[in-house]
Design a protein around this nucleic acid. Structure first.
Length: 254
DNA sequence: CATCGAATAT
DNA sequence: CATATTCGAT
């Protein structure tokens, strides 16, 4: 059962007119070294030893990241925990640590400037367009500074079904170790996916990982399982003059 | 000993 | 710039 198909139900795919089972994992891009074709048994060792391709933090992945951090509270939001909560197969602690570092910087800069308005910060020139693209593209839990479960004990989060957004792209080998592409889509106004063909050509794909907010928090705030079947949905990349920062679906978080 | 995180490297 | 790796601190 190819997970590429488990992630998106057939009817859902139809409903959105998806090109069928997207090549898997093209979605988020958690690379994984080859599973050992030979037949040895040290799969784990190899998986940990071989160097994985660069992780690409797609908006979807970042979303999960943010959700995880939000649910953990600043205090518990450390790489290992975040990683576990995200439940993304192939995602390493390092991956998260690196992203977290950057995210913290973003939040810091965000605080400095006016209030917590991404727009304002961006306008003020304190936030780079690039930051805006990934970080502010999605909802930024405004109250990240107020520890949520900070005082509480370790959150007994339920095991999330590991999602497996592999990125089996044997991409370029080792081009001149210089600069790849850093097509910074000039400015906001043009959506994120941007240059499909103009040198950009990101391979955004979609996946529907299990929603993060399905854990029972300290408060008796549980909701029926069916309530959050869809954590994140397809994102219509509408352009045409106006920006659309409309998130028309709950994350299961709020 | 594990892992965090700022600094640094690619 | 985005992500990875290093390395001292906890």
């Amino acid at each position: 059962m190819p997970l590429s198909q488990t992630l998106i139900t057939p009817d859902l795919a139809l409903a959105f007119d998806l090109p069928s089972p997207v090549p898997a994992a093209a979605a988020a891009a958690i690379p994984r070294p080859d599973p050992d074709p030979g037949g040895a048994g040290d799969e784990g060792a190899a998986a940990r030893t071989l160097k994985r391709p660069r992780l690409v933090w797609t908006p979807q992945l970042h979303k999960r990241f943010v959700d995880a951090v939000a649910h953990l509270g600043i205090k518990n939001a450390v790489p290992k925990t975040i990683m576990q909560l995200m439940g993304v197969d192939g995602l390493t602690r390092e991956n998260v640590a690196s992203h977290l570092q950057k995210y913290r910087l973003y939040l810091k800069r965000m605080q400095q400037s006016s209030s917590s308005s991404a727009s304002a910060a961006l306008a003020g020139g304190h936030i780079s367009a690039a930051d805006h693209q990934l970080f502010a593209s999605g909802p930024v839990p405004h109250h990240f500074l107020s520890p949520r479960g900070a005082a509480g004990p370790d959150p007994p989060f339920v095991p999330l079904v590991p999602v497996n957004p592999l990125h089996h792209h044997h991409h370029h080998h080792q081009i001149g170790q210089q600069y790849y592409y850093q097509r910074q889509m000039g400015h906001f106004g043009s959506a994120a996916s941007g240059g499909v063909g103009a040198g950009g050509g990101f391979d955004y794909r979609f996946l529907s990982p299990p929603p993060i907010g399905m854990q029972h928090m300290g408060m008796g705030m549980g909701f029926p399982p069916a309530a959050s079947s869809f954590g994140e949905q397809l994102e219509s990349e509408e352009r045409g003059g106006g920006r659309r920062e409309l998130t028309l679906f709950p994350t299961g978080d709020d």
